[in-house]
């Protein structure tokens, strides 16, 4: 082979390699590194997404129905809820009750609780059409498991996560029933839409007929999944009434005890080091923990950097930060600002 031919062959191979590489890199910018399946950067579950209130209605007495819109709102599935940041900075959780196919729009319903912690009063007084309402990406701890048959039970505003579920069950052609209880018909939202489903839906208003009759649950067909959202006594009654072969899925309202705002002393058990410490009224959990474990990392001491986030093994936390997501709050806390709601906490420290 002549020299010129060899040179041409090498140049040709080099050109082809270059083209192939260019194509690869165009498709995969850091080739040959693979991509992480669920990207983390730029997709923080802690990020507040700016959403606009595009409609406000009162579908029932004391119930506020808001539709939020933004092209950035991620898709969701029935049973999901979102963190919402009220103008005062309070964070509250509400179930999504619109249509998951309606991309870029979330619908939430807020029941006014006059003697509550203040979130619903603020929402009713201040959230008007055209206002901005930051929300976090939705999360679902009450997902609808595919099944040929469902029994839904909703108490009052607990109808919100159930509403998209029964639409999904209907669309999937499943058998389903709904027992929907509330104080009075005038305070129960979505009655018109629900009555269109006919005999599948049983509405029981307490001022007319007392509490909903749960006996149909006892006779539920094998394989029926029970989904219930409502006040604690209703959920306990449902658990007791459901047939043993009908698994019960419950959605609890997140806050079970009111925050007083005041600080009371409590004890913290450090599970791994096997020590128990007292947290005084005037000191932070972090200060008390660091007396025993001076290595415990922290930085801002004001609840924004997240350095002192720690796993909670037992006890109820009074979360006083605005950083952690609902999901993180289930099993962790920021030691610098948050405290115990009860008298005792167990930390994985």
């Amino acid at each position: 082979m002549s020299r010129a031919l060899k040179l041409a062959a090498v140049a040709g191979v080099a050109l082809l390699t270059r083209r192939a590489l260019k194509g690869r890199i165009a498709r995969s910018p850091l080739w040959p590194l693979p991509a992480l399946e669920t990207p983390v950067s730029g997709h923080s579950p802690r990020r507040w997404l700016p959403a606009l209130i595009v409609s406000r209605a009162e579908p029932a007495q004391g119930v506020l129905l808001l539709t939020l819109a933004s092209p950035e709102l991620p898709p969701w599935t029935p049973g999901a809820h979102v963190d919402v940041q009220l103008p005062s900075g309070l964070i509250r959780q509400y179930s999504l009750c619109g249509d998951p196919a309606d991309a870029g729009r979330y619908t939430i319903a807020i029941r006014l609780v006059e003697d509550g912690r203040g979130g619903s009063r603020e929402a009713h007084a201040q959230l008007v059409e055209g206002a901005e309402l930051p929300v976090r990406p939705p999360r679902n701890r009450f997902p609808l498991v595919p099944s040929p048959s469902y029994a839904f039970v909703a108490g009052g505003i607990g109808i919100t996560p159930v509403l998209p579920m029964l639409r999904a069950a209907e669309a999937a052609g499943a058998e389903w029933t709904l027992l929907y209880g509330g104080r009075s018909r005038s305070s129960m939202p979505f009655l018109a839409e629900l009555e269109a489903y006919g005999p599948r839906v049983t509405v029981t208003a307490q001022d007319e007929a007392g509490l909903p009759d749960l006996t149909p649950l006892t006779g539920a067909a094998p394989g029926t999944l029970v989904y219930c959202c409502g006040p604690e006594p209703l959920m306990e009654a449902v658990e007791a009434a459901a047939a043993p072969h009908a698994p019960v899925h419950l959605e609890r309202f997140t806050a079970t005890a009111p925050t007083t705002g005041a600080s009371h002393p409590f004890t913290v058990e450090l599970h791994r080091s096997g020590r128990t410490i007292e947290v005084g009224r005037d000191e932070s959990t972090l200060t008390a923990v660091r007396r025993e474990l001076p290595d415990t990392p922290y930085s801002c001491a004001q609840g924004f950097c997240g350095t002192c986030q720690h796993r909670v093994l037992a006890g109820e936390v009074d979360h006083r930060d605005t950083l952690l997501t609902d999901q993180e709050r289930e099993d962790s806390m920021l030691l610098c600002v948050s405290r115990a709601r009860t008298d005792h906490l167990v930390l994985d420290l």
Binding site: L30, L33, A35, L36, V40, S41, G42
Partner: peptide, 16 residues
């Protein structure tokens, strides 16, 4: 959209 790149950076730091 930076995701094609950042998902690979995520892999680098989280996995590798």
């Amino acid at each position: 959209d930076p995701t094609p790149y950042t998902a690979q950076v995520d892999w680098l730091f989280e996995k590798l």
